[in-house]
Design a protein around this nucleic acid. Structure first.
Lengths: 214, 214, 214, 214
DNA sequence: GATGAATGAGGCTTCATTCAT
DNA sequence: GATGAATGAAGCCTCATTCAT
């Protein structure tokens, strides 16, 4: 029974995970619902027991993943006792670490979120708003301490920082790293996405940032 | 005669302009070729005299607009005699000014470019590569002068800056500014996209940047 | 239940039968897939659950019908105990009887097979090859017995005989016989396609063939 | 002037010749009018100065080629002073020689005539009727002499013979002869279409036919 | 007469969604 | 709940034909 209901409860998750992979692979529009079903190991119709329609599947995926991202960020930031700029660094590093660990999720959040901003506007996007609010708060605090230029509206600065992270994620995700070393500069080398966190901090902070690396 | 031949030569341009508006309005996938044709005032089949298919229409639109953007940027930057950071500011300001003046183009370049990174990878994107190369050059020069942190690979910094611009453009474009004043904070206020250029510069430059506003 | 499962299993057959009628009526190219669907009493999309595309529908129809023809011919010939020329007569008579009984099938096999020889070449046509092989075997046996001129390569003779049958079928099928008597020579009279079997035999056999008519 | 008008008069012929090649290459339905125009070296619209529409182009091609065929056959047969069976042999041999010399024409007459029997019925086909009448006359004469079985209605026998010729032509035309010798039986060898004339005669004549080969 | 850019009707096909089992 | 065969709306694209030059 427990196993059964667990499997049943799992089904929604399995579908979301499948959708993540399929959307990452083909893009939302090119992806077929039946492909998601196949990847999830369920029948086409089953998807409609858990989601209203294809759009809802994408929306739900966003909400779900952004929720996880926000939770991870909150947890990580809460642990930092140092000044706001260090919390910001942690925020950024954690985000990019997630991108590194979950490239499919990153691809969906980055590319598909973007392309579907169109219909995201209609559905609103509370989790993303939350993300920006948190980031804006960290920025404002860092501005108070004089670590970031205070002349910039913090919500705009938050947007800018998100833009950097998003673009880094995109560039990193789209660079298909050949297994092993890469042939003499044939393709752009896949840079270290996690290290990039420090680059972001050093780009935007006015002082030489205190390093607290592993 | 002049009118006629101008119109004839214009037809490709008219279709591109129509596609720009339609794609900006509905998004690439939701847009119908027949809508583009109607907007351009031509028959459906006429589109296929100038473009191989719907994809090619999008690709061509990118190339064309990015070419214009690059040309405008080159011209604007060439006029600046000051230090690299001032050239960079001009680059950024010009870019955001273009976003401001051509919101439809910005929407397509920003949203649709993103969502179609998928198939942009296949078609390559020489003009965008050019854009990044120019930006990277300016960054490197500014780094040499000590105006931007030199520890960041310039091509990564260029990506980050582009990310900021892109996100600013996106946020600005998607905020439907109600004509006239906006109802008490109901919607996020449409910030001044052009002024944002200075914010970008002040965010990333290590010294108080010299203002050279109009 | 029986009816239902029968119908379900039948669906492919129903579509083939509908295609046969529609193709015979309008010709392959002029026929619309949606007409076939309507004739079969299914939705347009259903066709594509059973066939890859319109071409595949035609190909499958050929294969299916030729298979039936070959089976009928084999059965009929196997019953004949007489000399090869009698088997050959049975082969021919059976074929023309099928044409008589299934004019739509005949029309498709005769006309559309021909017109699509173009793309039949690409798909091969094993059943037709089988048909020719069987016919060639009978011819060779009859040549051994001296009933047919032995100087002709048997596979070429088989082709010739098929050509006669095909042309007879075509001429017969295309002659729209008005019901009842025909107006004084206005239209070519629809000859007796089954009797024509004997004419074929008497045309090609060197001796007065033994008649074994009904 | 003469040259000019000759060229102008030629244009219709050039278009017919182009249509013959294009139809033979792609089939009537798959062939595009613009391809015919390109092959003929004229503009698309020019075709419509000489032909009512695409169908008319095919019809005219038939008429024209069948006329030439009939003329050639009449001339050849008129030279033969021997018995009807020899005239018949000449008729057949001449026809197959034409197939050999003009494979494109043969392909159109054979394949496209067949597939378009559909709309040929509507347009009638006087030249083909003429062909059959001539052939029927020769058959009847040969029957009178006892060289061909007299029990067969001569117009049906004519059909049969035409069927043989048509099928031989088709088989021969569709066998893409590999340049040079052919790999050990990989493809059916391209038989000698002209020699096949004698095979036809020996298949249908009751006596050992007098050979009058070159 | 000749051109060929433009037209636009119409078909093949896809795929999100439903619903009988 | 789960299935997956069936549906049918809708869009991309082709290409025969026209007509202004």
């Amino acid at each position: 029974m427990t196993v059964h209901s667990a499997q049943a409860g799992d089904k929604r998750e399995r579908i979301l995970a499948a959708a993540e992979r399929i959307f990452a692979r083909h893009g939302f529009f090119a992806a077929k619902v039946s492909d998601v079903a196949k990847e999830a190991g369920v029948a086409d119709g089953t998807i409609y027991l858990y989601f209203k329609n294809k759009d809802d599947l994408l929306i739900s995926l966003f909400e779900n993943r952004m929720q996880q991202v926000n939770a991870a960020l909150r947890t990580a930031v809460a642990k930092v006792k140092g000044p706001p700029i260090d919390q910001l660094r942690t925020f950024i590093r954690t985000y990019l670490q997630l991108v590194h660990d979950e490239p499919a999720a990153a691809e969906v959040l980055t590319i598909e979120l973007r392309q579907s901003s169109k219909f995201m506007k209609e559905y609103e996007n509370p989790e993303f708003a939350d993300f920006l609010r948190t980031l804006g708060g960290l920025v404002a605090a860092a501005q108070d301490k004089g670590d970031i230029d205070g002349g910039i509206p913090s919500h705009v600065a938050a947007r800018m920082i998100f833009g950097m992270l998003d673009e880094l994620a995109l560039a990193w995700v789209l660079t298909k790293q050949p297994l092993g070393g890469n042939a003499a500069g044939a393709r752009p080398k896949k840079f270290d996405i996690v290290r990039a966190a420090d680059w972001v901090i050093s780009l935007i902070s006015r002082h030489v940032a205190s390093k607290e690396q592993e």
